[in-house]
Design a protein around this nucleic acid. Structure first.
Lengths: 154, 154
DNA sequence: TTAGGTGCAAATTCTTTGCACCCTG
DNA sequence: CAGGGTGCAAAGAATTTGCACCTAA
C-alpha cells in the first residue's frame, strides 16, 4: 500500500525543513531512507527499509539505515510502533485491559476497562479484517519522571 | 507494585489446571517463573524475571526462563506487551492515529482518529502520571489471513 | 575545506537451540 | 522408568559502535 503523492511530497518537504533547522545534512542515503518510510503504510522494520533502499542505492549499509531511522525518530519526524528499543515484556493479566505507558522511562501499568474494549471501529477498519478486541494505550509521563524533571521541553 | 494475594492464588490455581489439561509438567522452575510474572504488575522482561527467580532458585538458567515464558504465552495464561517477538517498526505518520494489528501475521495499518485521542481516563490512571495522548489498538485477523485460514480455533 | 556522515567489520544485546543429564508423572 | 524439562554452552538474530574514508555545505 502506498501513500499518495501529495502527502509524500509534503512529508519530504517537511523533512528538508526540519533537517535544515536542526543542522542535519541531507545526504542521498537519508533522503532515500526517509522517502522509503514516508511512502509506505506498512510500518517497515529496519531490515525491510534496507532491502528497499538497496535496490535504488546498492551501496547503502544496514547500519546507516539504523542510524538514520533513529535520527529521524529523534527529529520527531517519524515514530516507532510500540515504543522503545526494548525487549519483549510479559503480562499475567489476560483480562481485557489497557495500559498507561511513560514515554520517558517506559514504565507500564494496567488499568481496568471502562468500556473501551468495545469501541466502535470506523468503517475503514472493518475492511482490514475481523476485529477481536480493542486496547487503549495512554501515553504520558509517570509520577516519578515528573518528580525528577517536570514537564516542558524535550 | 504487587498483585494482592487472592488474585495471585487464583492465577496460580488456574495455571495448575491449564497445565494439567495441556499435559504440561509442573516443575519448580515453571512454578517460580509463573509466580514471578503473576505477582508483578511491572510487566517484566525475561531478564528481569530471571534475576528475581534466581534469588530463590540460584540454578535456574535464562534460557529456561525464556522457554517457560513463551510456553505460558502459548498456553494463553500470560500475554506480551505489544505483540510479537519482532523487531522495531517505524511509522512516518506522526499525527494522532490508531492501529489495526493482525494477531496472526502482525500486519499493521493506521486509521484516522474518530475522537479516541481524547478518551476520558479513569481516575485510577491519573495517579500514574500526566497523560499526553491516547492510542487505540484494534486487534484482529486481517483479510489475507482470514482467506488462508478462516476463524475458529487457535 | 572540514565536520558530519558513511561503509565496513567487529562488538553487543537479546533470544533461541543442541545435547546430555535430571526429575515429574 | 520414560519422556519431557533443565542447564550449559554455543549459535542466531537484531542492533550498535569504532574507525578511516568520503562528501554536503
Amino acid at each position: 500500500m502506498k501513500v499518495d503523492n501529495e502527502k509524500l511530497n509534503e512529508r519530504i518537504a517537511r523533512f528538508h525543513t526540519l533537517a535544515r533547522e536542526a543542522g542535519i545534512r541531507l545526504t542521498h542515503q537519508r533522503l532515500e531512507i526517509f522517502r522509503e518510510v514516508a511512502s509506505s503504510e506498512e510500518h517497515p522494520d529496519a531490515e525491510s527499509v534496507y532491502r528497499s533502499v538497496k535496490r535504488r542505492m546498492p551501496t547503502v549499509s544496514l547500519d546507516t539505515v539504523y542510524r538514520t531511522l533513529w535520527m529521524l525518530t529523534d527529529l520527531g519526524i517519524i515514530g516507532t510502533l510500540s515504543g522503545k528499543r526494548k525487549s519483549v515484556r510479559f503480562d499475567a493479566n489476560i483480562q481485557p485491559h489497557h495500559h498507561f505507558v511513560c514515554i520517558r522511562c517506559g514504565m507500564t501499568r494496567d488499568f481496568e476497562d471502562p468500556g473501551y474494549a468495545r469501541l466502535a471501529a470506523p468503517e475503514q477498519v472493518e475492511q482490514y479484517g475481523h476485529i477481536l478486541e480493542s486496547r487503549v494505550e495512554m501515553r504520558g509521563i509517570c509520577g516519578e519522571c515528573l518528580r525528577k524533571e517536570p514537564m516542558n521541553g524535550s
